[in-house]
């Protein structure tokens, strides 16, 4: 028997042993698996949606007030302060709208 033949015989032997010893019923998921996932996912997105907006609004208000206080203490008048804050708000809103639009286009193309 050549070395290759010997290795082939060993491989076949092992294949037979594994076929014989490993074959067993395939385990199945519990019957309510899907319902559990969908319920958990829904709860997750409800919570996330609600808290995301609260955190975001709190962040915007806090940073606007902080900027306002810093700029006023630096001796800037109210008019330029309001102008800067308005420009920053409009700029951020435009950027978010642009990003959201691009994501929607990418999704519809996919």
């Amino acid at each position: 028997m050549t070395e290759t033949e010997h290795h082939d015989a060993e491989d076949l032997e092992m294949d037979r042993l594994l076929m014989d010893r490993m074959r067993a019923p395939v385990p199945a998921l519990s019957s309510n698996f899907e319902r559990k996932i969908v319920r958990a996912a829904k709860r997750d997105s409800d919570l996330l949606g609600r808290y995301r907006w609260i955190v975001f609004a709190a962040y915007v208000v806090a940073s606007a007030l902080t900027s306002l206080a810093i700029m006023h203490n630096a001796g800037l008048g109210w008019l330029p302060i309001v102008g800067i804050l308005a420009a920053a708000t409009v700029g951020s809103a435009a950027f978010v709208a642009w990003k959201t639009g691009r994501a929607a286009v990418a999704r519809s193309e996919a």
Binding site: L29, S30, F33, K36, I37, A40, A41, D44, S45, A106, R107, A110
Partner: peptide
């Protein structure tokens, strides 16, 4: 089964970042 459950929740959580 726990792994399968956690995977689906992870996927649901990161769906928004999936670019396809």
């Amino acid at each position: 089964e726990d792994v399968a459950q956690e995977v689906f929740l992870k996927i649901h959580h990161s769906l928004k970042t999936f670019r396809g």
